[in-house]
């Protein structure tokens, strides 16, 4: 890893200011970024560590009944603190990586990175979450539908930090993933959420454009909330799926159906 200067702000405002420096980059829990830097695939002159900012850590409930999770909250904390209030999300967080990784990795880091195989983007998109982005011009609210723009690409502007993610709590929900045995990332995973006004289905790991909503399944499940409603559907276009040595496009497209049905059955 090339050397860099590490800045350790204590407040969100200090962090936003530090990110204004030329060639500065935010560092969340570092569970993805540090290995990437070791491989010399990422580099900056200055990294701004977000781990010391207490105001973006923790879980609370807002007036609309949404669960608000600070961007610097670790997966372990979400797994523990949302176990009662939003079990599907807690279960997602509690199965990311392994226990040691979950003690460092954060929701803000995962969402800002938008790895096409990451778990949290599916949870946020499937829950119709709102992402709060803090930047030099103040706070922006971004709907999950507008946030995830493709593989490793989000609506975040240069220098913006995910300060909070707000999750409406569905009536029923579940995240089911088919794990790629070596990396432990999902080969394909589905987050299903049934709200009073309809169903949302978010798929991660499968598409070459990153996390996406499987709208055909949403319509079918809104009419009939059952695994059988999914089994009758045509799988997404295999040509748009990731194809690699772990599974070709047709295999992943098939898994999209299987994991969605499993998630509905377990919700």
């Amino acid at each position: 890893m090339y050397d860099f200067e590490l800045v350790k702000p204590k407040t969100l405002r200090e962090a936003v200011a530090a990110l204004q420096a030329e060639d500065a980059q935010a560092l969340g829990g570092g569970q993805t970024l540090l290995p990437t830097m070791k491989a010399r695939l990422a580099m900056a002159e200055q990294f701004v560590a977000l781990s010391g900012i207490d105001e973006i850590k923790g879980v609370c409930l807002d007036d609309d009944g949404r669960i608000c999770i600070g961007g610097g909250t670790t997966h372990a904390t979400v797994a523990r603190e949302c176990a009662e209030s939003y079990p599907a999300l807690a279960s997602l967080a509690g199965r990311i990586g392994d226990p040691a990784v979950r003690n460092r990795g954060t929701i803000g880091g995962s969402i800002a990175n938008n790895d096409p195989s990451a778990c949290y983007p599916a949870g946020a998109l499937g829950s119709n979450a709102t992402i709060m982005a803090e930047g030099p011009n103040g706070t922006r609210e971004i709907a999950a539908d507008d946030f995830f723009l493709g593989m490793f690409t989000t609506a975040l502007e240069e220098g913006e930090i995910v300060s909070e993610v707000k999750f409406p709590v569905p009536e029923r929900a579940r995240y089911e993933k088919f794990i790629q045995p070596a990396s432990r990332f999902p080969l394909v995973a589905a987050f299903v959420a049934k709200f009073s006004d309809g169903v949302r289905v978010a798929i991660t790991g499968a598409s070459s454009s990153g996390v996406f909503r499987w709208t055909e399944a949403e319509e079918a499940l809104s009419a009939d909330w059952s695994p059988d409603a999914v089994k009758g559907l045509t799988a997404p276009d295999a040509g748009e799926m990731i194809s690699d040595l772990h599974g070709d496009g047709a295999y992943r497209a098939h898994l999209v159906k299987v994991m969605t049905a499993r998630a509905v059955a377990a919700a």
Binding site: L6, L34, P35, A49, G52, A100, N103
Partner: peptide
């Protein structure tokens, strides 16, 4: 690369992979 766990230590009571945390933090 934070996969094998040979470097696990406890930081403020919780296990972390010491190869994937910066000392200055």
């Amino acid at each position: 690369t934070s996969q094998c766990g040979a470097c696990v230590v406890h930081v403020n009571g919780d296990p972390v992979k010491a190869c994937s945390v910066l000392a200055q933090e």
